[in-house]
C-alpha cells in the first residue's frame, strides 16, 4: 500500500516507461502462452501438419507402387508361360509364407525396449508408426504380429493382453527392416518416441540396432 502513496512522486517519463513495460509484458505473456498451447497440442497421438512429409510419403508410395507393377508384369509373363508357372507359384508361396507367419524368419532390424507401463492405445500407435516407417515384420515380447493376431485388449485391472497373453514391461518390440531409417523415423521430432515422452513423465526406452532379429513361426 505504501507504493501507491508514492504515486505522486512519479515523473511523466517514468509513467511512460512503466506503461510501455506493462504492455510489452502483457504481449509477451499472451504470445508465449499461445505458442506453448500450440506446441503441446501438436504432440497429440497423431503427427502434426507437414506438407513436405505428406508429399514425401506420396512420392515414396507411388515409386513403390510402380516397382510392384513391374514385378507383377513379370510375374504375369511367367505364369502365362507353362514352363515357368510352377516355379513362379512356388516362389510366390515362399514369399507369402514370410508374411503370414507360416515359417520362421530373420533379418536386420531394431529392438525397442520400453520399461514404462503403457496403456493399450499406445501399442496400436507404436505398431502403426513402425509399419508407417517401413518395417516388414513386428513382434512384441516375442509374439509375432500377423493377420491372425487378435487386437490389444485392456483388462479391467489395466493390464494389456495380446493373443491371450498378458504383456508386462519391459515391452520388447522387435522389428525387421532398414534399421537406421526406422530408428530415425521413430525418434524424429513429433515422432512416436517424443509423443510417448510427452505423455509419460517416467518414460524410459532403449533402442538397439541389430544385424539379426529372429521371429518364430506362428
Amino acid at each position: 500500500m505504501k507504493l501507491f502513496k508514492q504515486n505522486t512522486e512519479y515523473t511523466t517519463p517514468q509513467i511512460i516507461i512503466l506503461a510501455a513495460t506493462g504492455l510489452l509484458l502483457g504481449f509477451l505473456l499472451i504470445t508465449q502462452s499461445r505458442y506453448f498451447t500450440s506446441y503441446v497440442t501438436t504432440l497429440g497421438r497423431d503427427s502434426g501438419e507437414n506438407v513436405f512429409r505428406k508429399i514425401q510419403m506420396l512420392k515414396t508410395s507411388n515409386n513403390d507402387l510402380a516397382e510392384e507393377i513391374s514385378k507383377l508384369e513379370l510375374q504375369l509373363q511367367e505364369v502365362s508361360n507353362q514352363a515357368l508357372a510352377l516355379e513362379t507359384i512356388n516362389k510366390d508361396i515362399q514369399k507369402n509364407k514370410l508374411i503370414t507367419g507360416d515359417i520362421a524368419i530373420y533379418g536386420p532390424g531394431i529392438e525397442i525396449e520400453i520399461g514404462t507401463q503403457l496403456s493399450d492405445i499406445w501399442f496400436t500407435d507404436i505398431v502403426n508408426e513402425l509399419f508407417a516407417a517401413g518395417v516388414q515384420a513386428v513382434s512384441i515380447n516375442s509374439l509375432r504380429l500377423t493377420d491372425t493376431t487378435i487386437g490389444f485388449d485392456k483388462l479391467p485391472n489395466g493390464q494389456i493382453m495380446l493373443n491371450n497373453v498378458i504383456l508386462t514391461p519391459p515391452y520388447k518390440f522387435a522389428v525387421i527392416g532398414e534399421k537406421t531409417n526406422i530408428k530415425q523415423v521413430i525418434e524424429t521430432s513429433g515422432g512416436i518416441i517424443e509423443r510417448l515422452k510427452s505423455t509419460y513423465q517416467d518414460f524410459n526406452y532403449k533402442i538397439t540396432e541389430k544385424d539379426r532379429i529372429e521371429m518364430s513361426k506362428i
Binding site: 509364407k97 520362421a104 524368419i105 525387421i176 513361426k217
Partner: peptide, 16 residues
C-alpha cells in the same frame, strides 16, 4: 497395397 519382404529371410531352422 504392397508387401515388402526384401529385408526378411526364411530361417532354415523353423523352430527359432
Amino acid at each position: 497395397g504392397l508387401f515388402h519382404t526384401n529385408f526378411i529371410q526364411a530361417a532354415t531352422n523353423e523352430t527359432i
